[in-house]
């Protein structure tokens, strides 16, 4: 019996933070579903040049409006059929994913950087900085995004870069509002005072004390904004002022399909469902990431 060793406190080492994080991710259904869908769409976009069965720009006018495989007249040569110009719909969908995702993430990134800097500065420094930022937010909120981007696109001409830039510069308001209030909350906590009393520079406090603790709302807003940007791009393309044909963005595909709505509804349904799945996946993932990384769920 003497052989039984009692574990010393030092020996009981729990799982490392990384292991715990992995376990929480695997246990969260929303994250799993969201990342699987998003993963498929991203894979589809990245591997489009390799796996797309046809050139998305190649028109075969003899093969116009072939219905998808599940319709009576469908065949596996064009699994999702062809559009009004005889282009393979599956290939266009894959290349379109590239563009929609690029616009979504690039816009969310640009506006995220602008909005976070403004919001954190306003929340942390307060006073005059806060006044200026709040004024800018109010100005921004008084401008309708669609109208302004329509006007800019009409003036400058439409291209992918213009759409991304315009949306990026217009969509920072939610970041700024949320980051401002989140920062104000965190700033008043004792650990910020402790870091300050430990001699940290303002920059260090912002980067290592404030930013990590406003990450949760930031992630949630960022995912919402990715979805928002994808939708806005679709709307702009639908109005003919977003991505220009023949580039295959999902919004543009919906727009091009609208003429065939009555007889060949799949032209709208397919990109529409993809758009819906993408937005759902992003939102699920955003919510899930918040749940998983929140300190209160760490125990």
């Amino acid at each position: 019996m003497a052989a039984i060793t009692v574990p010393v406190a030092e020996d009981i080492i729990g799982p490392t933070p990384g292991q715990r994080l992995r376990k929480r991710i695997l246990g969260h259904r929303g994250v799993m579903i969201g990342s699987v869908i998003l993963g498929i769409i991203i894979l589809m976009a990245v591997l489009a040049p390799l796996i797309a069965p046809y050139d998305p720009y190649e028109q075969t006018l003899t093969n116009r409006l072939v219905p998808p495989v599940w319709a009576d007249a469908g065949s596996w040569t064009h699994p999702l059929g062809t559009d009004g110009l005889g282009r393979d719909y599956l290939s266009r969908l894959m290349y379109g994913a590239q563009i929609s995702l690029f616009i979504g993430f690039a816009t969310a990134l640009i506006s995220g950087v602008i909005g976070t800097i403004m919001g954190v500065a306003a929340g942390y420094f307060g006073g005059r900085v806060d006044l200026v930022v709040t004024f800018l937010i109010t100005c921004r909120l008084s401008m309708p995004v669609i109208l302004v981007s329509l006007a800019v696109v009409a003036l400058v001409g439409s291209s992918l870069t213009v759409v991304v830039t315009v949306l990026g510069v217009l969509l920072w308001d939610r970041y700024a509002v949320v980051m401002r209030s989140a920062t104000m909350q965190v700033r008043s906590l004792d650990y910020v005072a402790a870091a300050s009393a430990a001699g940290c520079s303002t920059w260090r406090i912002l980067v290592s004390e404030i930013l990590p603790n406003v990450m949760n709302p930031l992630i949630v807003v960022a995912t919402l904004e990715v979805a928002h940007a994808v939708l806005l791009e679709a709307a702009l393309s639908f109005l003919g002022l977003g991505v220009q044909p023949p580039l295959p963005s999902w919004g543009l595909m919906i727009s091009e399909g609208k003429d065939y709505l009555l007889f060949d509804a799949w032209l709208i349904t397919i990109p529409g469902i993809c758009l819906f799945a993408l937005l759902l996946a992003i939102n699920l993932l955003g919510d899930g990431v918040r749940d998983v990384t929140a300190p209160e769920n760490r125990s």
Partner: peptide, 22 residues
């Protein structure tokens, strides 16, 4: 502030908010 901090340090009231949860 950095020079002061070498000589004077605080202990705060609420240990739930004085430690960065991240």
């Amino acid at each position: 502030r950095k020079q002061i901090s070498r000589r004077i340090q605080p202990i705060f009231q609420d240990p739930y908010s004085s430690l960065n949860p991240r």
